[in-house]
Structures are given as C-alpha cells and as structure tokens.
Design a protein around this nucleic acid. Structure first.
Lengths: 155, 155
DNA sequence: GGTCAAAATTGACTGTGTCAAAACTGCCCG
DNA sequence: CGGGCAGTTTTGACACAGTCAATTTTGACC
C-alpha cells in the first residue's frame, strides 16, 4: 500500500523517505491539517493503515522541510487563512477555494467553477502577471450560527 | 488638523487618545503597513504633519490594542496575506481586494466591481452563512517579472 | 555492499502576537 | 475647574509558528 506513494514521490524527483510517506498518508482523510496536527498524528501513532507502515520519528524541522518539498513538487498545497497557522491538503491542481467559519475555524473546500487558475481576473491588474486568484469565503458554519439566524430573518 | 480625527474616534464610541490618533495618521499614505512598520514610524519620528502633532510613546501591546480597537470600530481593516504579518489599511467598507507580488510582496488594491460583501457566492455554501468573499490575486509585479516575460510569449 | 548527494536531526534562535496585572488618563459630572 | 472612574496604556513575561546552520543519517545508484 506504500508502493504507490513511493513511486509518486520518485516520479516527482523526490526520494521516497519514511518521513515523506508518513506526511502524505497522515494527510489522507485529514485535509487542512496544521504542521502541529501532522506532527502529533505522525509521532503519537502508527499511520492507521493497519499494514506494515509504522510511523517514523519526525523532527519539527524535518516536517517543515517535507512540507516545503511536497509543496514545491505540487503533491500538497498550503493555505494560510488569516488567524490560522499554515494548513495543508492533498487536493492540488484543481484551483479550488475555501469557506472558513469565523467562529470555530472549520474549513470547507469549494469547487472552482472555472477549474483552472486564475479563475477570476481583476478589473485592473496594475501591471502584474497574475497566476492565481485565491478566494476565501468567511462566515458562520451551521453549527456556530445562532439559532435565530438559522433561517434568514423575514423582515 | 487633529480635530477631525478626534471626532471620528468619538463618533465611533472610542476615546480620542494620542496613540489612536498617531496610528490613524501614520496610516495615511502608508496603506498595508505592518504593526512593526507602524511602530517604527510612530516611535522614531513626529507624524510628519509639521503641525503640533508630535508622536506619543506607544508600547507594542498598546499598538496591538489600538489596531484591534480601530478594526472593531471599522476605522481600519486588517489583511493577512499568506507569508506576511498582518497589514493594515484605512480603506474600509468598500470590499476591495488585493493583488500581491510573489517576489517582492508589493500589494495593490483592486476595486471590487460589485462593491458590497460578499461580492461573490460560492457554488455550494455548505450550510454557512457567508458575509465576505476575500479575493487575493497572486503574481509578479512589473518590476519583478523577468524581462522575457514583459510581453506575453507569442506562441 | 560502497559511495555520496539528498534528506533528517539537533538545538539555538527570531519574529509576531498574546496574557495578566499595574499604572495612567480622557472625559463626564458636580 | 477639579475629582473620579471606566477605558486605555504600559510593563514584562510568555507562547506559538517557523527558520537557520551545522552535523548526522539514509536512499538509491553503481
């Protein structure tokens, strides 16, 4: 089960190391993890696969190195919502966007209707050559919204 | 010349203090300043107005308090582009967006064609009640773009 | 299996921002 | 026009996220 991950790494010109495999598998099913969350998930448990893949030791610096290498290889993507440490996800290359709850910080992916970056053009590009439009929607998720606002007020 | 600022503060329910006036005036002509930049600008010089307004002492904590108070009063706005400390600006309430240079960090305002938040709706709001769409365009400014890319390639 | 560049670890360190308690000061009131 | 006090600011310690540089370890090719 680790074989595909190893090959994925090598096809991107990266060595297959236990640390890199661990970060990639730790991200499965845990989109938008912070570095600290990944660190805990990797250090305090095996990778949950039940197979031979036990977790390696992983230093903080090592984690940051891995995250940068994987980002540069476009195997993961990093987002930095205001007020949050950097978060990482496996969804890459589809130029999707994010919905963030102002209260609990929950993050939801939002498909990009255009699909490729930049999906949106500014009215005036001020001479920039733009390669990406990053969109973050802010609001309250269903759980955090006060009951009185669950339905839009009718005035 | 300080009178209007004082009144502005009071009309928003905030006391007019030397520190708050200094932050507001330090932001004039210096949009997208970081807290550190404001701190230096206020501590190391008078306010540049040439009038009686000399700068007060301002502690770091005091600066952060002021920035939070002014933000809550909607007198300033805070943005946090990925990879940058928080930045502050006086343009408020027009739901404008930002263009950021990946190389030098230069930030340009981009008018919002819709004008009021949220100017954009996600395809699926996942049950959130959305109040703002924050858009950041990423690219290279004219100064940072390599010469060969100054004109779009013609293939 | 040997070799060596690539990758990981170690430990100190920086920048940005926060907490809590004490001191100060605008501004209202008499 | 001076007292009083809630609202502000200062002080100093601290936390968090991330970075730097030097050393050690390791993956993968021969």
């Amino acid at each position: 089960m680790d074989q595909p991950v190893s090959e994925l790494l090598r096809t991107r010109g990266l060595r297959s190391t236990a640390q890199r495999r661990a970060v990639l598998t730790a991200l499965h099913g845990h989109a938008h993890s912070t570095a600290a969350e990944l660190e805990h998930r990797i250090q305090s448990a095996d990778d949950g696969s039940g197979t031979s893949g036990t977790s390696p030791r992983l230093s903080r610096q090592g984690l940051y190195n891995v995250l940068e290498d994987l980002s540069r290889a476009a195997l993961i993507r990093c987002i930095e919502p205001a007020g949050s440490p950097a978060r990482y996800e496996l969804r890459v290359g589809d130029n999707h966007h994010h919905l963030v709850c102002r209260s609990c910080g929950r993050i939801k992916d939002v498909d990009c209707s255009v699909g490729r970056a930049p999906c949106l053009e500014p009215g005036d590009d001020a001479g920039f050559s733009i390669d990406e439009a990053e969109i973050t929607w802010w609001g309250l998720c269903a759980d955090c919204r006060p009951a009185t606002a669950q339905r839009p007020p009718r005035h």
